[in-house]
Structures are given as C-alpha cells and as structure tokens.
Amino acid sequence: MSVNIDGCGAPDQAAPIPASVDLEKETVISGFVKAGVETVGGAYVRLLDATGEFAAEVVASPEGHFRFFAAPGSWTVRALSRLGSGESVVAVDRGLNEISVAVAN
C-alpha cells in the first residue's frame, strides 16, 4: 500500500464514492443540505464529534451534496450558508449513512 499524501482539502462532493472505499469497513455519512424542499449548493458543512469538537469541513456540491468518512458513533453535521444555518445529530454505524441537514435563517 502507498501512503496517501494528497492534501487535506475536500474532494469533489458530487462524485461517486471511490471504488477503493470499502463500505464494509468505512463509516460514510452522506446527504444533502436543504432549505425547505430545495437543496442548497455551496454550503459549508462541518462534522463535529460527540464532544462538539470540529472534525472536518467540506463545501457542498452545487446540488447540495456532502460526504464524510467517519467512525461508528454519534456525530453532529452542521451547515452554514447564505440561506442560514442548521444542524443534525446522527448516530451512525459502518456502511453508508444517509442524512439531510435543514438550514434556515
């Protein structure tokens, strides 16, 4: 195996999950930012751990999609956008965990 020294910047949030990601092992938290029924593109979405500490941040795709690679447990997903902010608290397990985050002023 090679050491991945890619940067820590966020990968394309709209791209499919890379084939190298093993959903038997990875805990993926994935979903959309929404204001009402509309999705919100370009929102800043951050993942906070169970103590409220920052773990990661991505910019949602133009379609409002985001994705994190976490670990089983409790997490908070918080979104900040020009249409307001909002958050969802989720308990996740290995595999794909799909959620949505509603933002409002």
């Binding site: 195996m1 991945n4 820590c8 751990d49 991505v58 994705r67 994190f68 690679f69």
Partner: peptide
C-alpha cells in the same frame, strides 16, 4: 489534528477515505 486523529481512532481527516499505510 482532530481529537480522533490524535488518539489514533482515525488516520485522516473525516472528509477523506481512511485508507493509510502508516
């Protein structure tokens, strides 16, 4: 790094796949 990376529970920031050799 984030507390989980520090403690060794994660190998990379949580927006990246976790595969690593080290």
């Amino acid at each position: 790094r984030s507390p989980d990376e520090y403690a060794g529970r994660l190998l990379a920031p949580a927006h990246l796949p976790q595969e690593q050799a080290q």
